[in-house]
């Protein structure tokens, strides 16, 4: 039981999703290096946090459903959790940065 045993109908969409997710996350993290100021940088990791994580989690759901031959959707929990919690951290960091840059 490994990635090579996944049937083709699940493997093809999972491949596309994984490549998209990997590239999106990579570009998002690259933004940490390429952008100049902190206020521009704070937008970059959101890319990996939303669509990148979403693509990978969808691919994980597809492959585990195909391997177990029943509906396995507990990755939905991680997706929801990331979607709800990542903005909290970003907002707090934004307010902290605004407070510190004003001093």
């Amino acid at each position: 039981m490994s990635a090579a045993d996944v049937p083709l109908w699940a493997a093809l969409p999972a491949t596309v999703l994984l490549i998209c997710g990997g590239l999106l996350t990579l570009v998002g993290s690259l933004g940490l290096l390429r952008l100049d100021s902190f206020f521009a940088r704070i937008h970059a990791p959101t890319m990996g946090g939303t669509l990148g994580a979403g693509c990978v989690l969808l691919a994980s759901m597809l492959t585990s459903t195909a391997l177990a031959e029943r509906l396995v959707i507990h990755e939905l929990l991680i997706t929801l959790f990331i979607l709800i919690t990542a903005p909290v951290t970003t907002t707090l960091l934004m307010r902290a940065a605004m407070l510190r840059s004003r001093e």
Partner: peptide, 27 residues
């Protein structure tokens, strides 16, 4: 706030409770 911050390119950066004015940071 979750929608605005979860969308890349915009970050919610404070709401004035008295006047209900939102400050939005845009990339």
């Amino acid at each position: 706030s979750i929608i605005v911050t979860g969308t890349p390119g915009t970050v919610w950066s404070g709401l004035d409770p008295a006047t209900n004015v939102l400050t939005l940071h845009v990339l």
